[in-house]
């Protein structure tokens, strides 16, 4: 497989997954804010922080309110909007048509056009909801087509790696924001304790919902939703496909299909064992945000190694 093609397949998977996650995030956030009383410190600016695009946002908008955020994340021409991600996914797919099943390309192509034409729906809450769900469904469908039709060779390995790394990264961001909010709340002297407890439940449930993890979590953890269990589930659960560790395992599993995978395998294993041996209750008490930062640096290092090992040399 050509290095350039491998690179584009990988990015195509990342962009698709990122678009799906952004759609989930926006959807869940809209619902969450409807549930929460005004006095909570959680706001739309937190959503910008999760996407890691605070700077770009600040260049284009003054207020972090619902309309601006929805426009920013759905239809803005800048790189962080869903429509830009899907355009990027399509651009990458256009250049990998020879190795992808044609129905998957057709799906990506269609979704790109859909996102372009649906951009006007960002302002209206219910139309937006419907649109985001359509995008989530379509992304899932496209990955389904890839899973159903691609041989388990190098090409598919890059799809899985791109998707897994993107997921791990996004889940860790979600956990991060949840955790930061939790601390802010615990330290807020104005918040009555009984209110804090309800609030906490709603917050973590939303974090779970954004990852379609609520049901699986319920089956797995038979207690009332609480921060510690949620963080543990989203970081450490080997069985749940969106949990960080599961995605690192996925990468380890596909690596043997690729030549020269030694360095990447080593880095992935390092991240895995670090994660495995971290003690969540302690982390939730203190140091979770730092731990997550560290994890995200690990992801970046893994990406760099992937890129150095298999993609075209940068000239």
């Amino acid at each position: 497989m050509l290095s350039r093609v491998a690179e584009r397949i990988y990015w195509q998977a990342r962009y698709l997954e990122r678009a799906e996650n952004t759609a989930r995030l926006l959807n869940v956030f809209s619902n969450l804010l409807l549930d929460l009383p005004d006095r909570t410190t959680l706001g739309w600016s937190d959503l910008v922080r999760i996407t890691g695009a605070s700077e770009i946002f600040a260049q284009h908008y003054r207020n972090a309110n619902e309309t601006n955020l929805a426009r920013f994340l759905i239809s803005d021409p800048c790189d962080v909007s869903i429509s830009a991600m899907l355009a990027n996914a399509r651009e990458n797919a256009r250049t990998t048509r020879e190795v992808m099943p044609s129905e998957a390309f057709e799906g990506i192509n269609e979704l790109h056009y859909y996102a372009q034409s649906a951009a006007g729906k960002a302002d209206d809450r219910s139309a937006r909801n419907e649109m985001l769900e359509h995008i989530i469904e379509s992304c899932q469908q496209i990955f389904g087509m890839l899973a159903g039709a691609m041989s388990r060779d190098a090409g598919y390995a890059f799809v899985r790696m791109g998707r897994a790394l993107e997921r791990a990264d996004m889940v860790s961001r979600m956990v991060d924001v949840g955790a930061r909010k939790l601390f802010a709340m615990l330290e807020d002297p104005a918040a009555p304790p009984e209110f804090a407890e309800t609030w906490q439940g709603i917050l973590w449930m939303s974090v779970l919902r954004s990852q379609s993890a609520y049901q699986m979590y319920r089956q797995h953890v038979r207690r009332r939703v609480n921060g510690e269990d949620v963080v543990c589930f989203l970081l450490h659960n080997e069985e749940f496909p969106r949990a960080v560790i599961h995605n690192l395992t996925t990468i380890s599993k596909v690596l043997p299909r690729l030549p020269n995978h030694g360095e990447v395998a080593e880095l992935v294993n390092m991240a895995r064992s670090e994660l495995k041996h971290s003690h969540v209750p302690e982390l939730v008490e203190r140091g979770l945000p730092e731990r997550i930062d560290h994890l995200q640096i690990r992801f970046a290092v893994i990406h760099d190694a992937i890129s150095r090992t298999w993609f075209l040399p940068r000239t």
């Binding site: 050509l2 350039r4 093609v5 075209l312």
Partner: peptide
């Protein structure tokens, strides 16, 4: 054409 022939589609840099 590359796709239908099962050939690699390359650019100069490849």
């Amino acid at each position: 054409l590359a796709q239908r022939m099962g050939a690699e589609l390359v650019e100069g840099s490849d």
